[in-house]
């Protein structure tokens, strides 16, 4: 379908955004890359009165390192994320996730801020930022506040964003030599939303023991699911087949997947177990030695 009628305004600064939002109220929707919003408008399921284009706001751009924190501006496009040397070095999980996101033409427009704000439960980046224990920087007329990624995703397509806020940036703790991360997923076709996926992050000590494991599943719930039980099952353990099996077993209480067009909840549970082993196996001593 054709898009419903709406107005278009371009914001050059955050002040413009606050002003336009004040003028138009709930009818105003922010648009950055537009790869989700504009696609859904073609269904005519929502009819915003005005789209506020934030793509030229300089404050939302750029990838920088400050101390041990990688700051990624909300307008960073997926393609930029995939080729940025700072991202590759300090948050390799994000770089690894990019090829899974749709297709090249989409990645040239879609932004990390947009992906996080839309919070699709099957999307890769929300799960990755939770796995990396990232912090979202939310801006509003009152200033900035920081929200842990794990607290940002509150429900199906719902986030902690207040009506007057937007995502300004994502702050990721920079990877250390002990950091390990992986993203794995099962999708019917390349670029599809995953039937089930897992973004995993942990630290491997010199003694081979796991610390700070964060197994975050996507496509299996209302949003990215940080699997507390499965993660806890790994904490302090030497990573081996037994530890992986323990994590798989604990997973049963962590996730409660819905059924969808691809299959029943049990299929997603099964796939999540399979992905757990596939992701963690990469950090087994033998696998690391081989790579």
């Amino acid at each position: 379908m054709k898009w419903p009628a709406f107005a278009y305004e371009r914001a050059s600064t955050l002040q413009d955004v606050w002003r336009l939002r004040a003028e138009h109220g709930e009818g105003a929707r922010l648009v950055a890359g537009g790869q989700t919003l504009l696609a859904t408008l073609a269904f005519r399921l929502s009819e915003p009165s005005v789209l506020v284009d934030i793509t030229r706001i300089e404050a939302l751009r750029g990838v920088t390192v400050q101390g041990s924190t990688l700051r990624i501006g909300a307008l960073t496009r997926h393609a930029e994320l995939g080729r940025d040397p700072l991202v590759a070095r300090h948050a390799p999980l994000l770089a690894e996730a990019v090829p899974y996101i749709a297709h090249p033409a989409i990645r040239n427009r879609g932004t990390i801020g947009g992906s996080l704000a839309y919070a699709d439960p099957a999307a890769e980046l929300p799960a990755c930022v939770v796995a990396l224990d990232a912090t979202l920087v939310l801006a509003s007329p009152a200033g900035e506040r920081r929200v842990a990624a794990r607290e940002f995703f509150t429900g199906l397509l719902e986030t902690a964003l207040k009506p007057d806020e937007l995502i300004a940036a994502v702050e990721v703790p920079a990877a250390t030599p002990a950091s390990r991360s992986a993203i794995v997923e099962v999708a019917r076709r390349s670029g599809d939303y995953a039937m089930a996926g897992l973004a995993a992050s942990l630290s491997l000590g010199a003694d081979g023991r796991v610390s700070a494991p964060r197994l975050v599943y996507f496509g299996v719930g209302n949003g990215p699911v940080l699997a507390a039980g499965a993660s806890a099952a790994l904490e302090g353990k030497a990573l081996d087949a037994g530890a992986i099996a323990a994590a798989q077993a604990a997973l049963a209480r962590d996730i409660d997947p819905p059924s969808d067009l691809h299959g029943p909840p049990e299929m997603k549970r099964h796939l999540a177990r399979v992905l757990t082993a596939r992701a963690l196996s990469r950090f087994l001593p033998a696998a690391e030695a081989a790579s």
Binding site: Y8, L38, N108
Partner: peptide, 24 residues
């Protein structure tokens, strides 16, 4: 398809390919 999936609308904007149906 006009919802960003089929790729028939692929064009270049500022040197990079995009889905033309997902650009204002």
């Amino acid at each position: 398809c006009e919802h960003g999936v089929c790729g028939a609308c692929t064009v270049r904007v500022d040197g990079e390919i995009v889905r033309g149906c997902l650009v204002l």
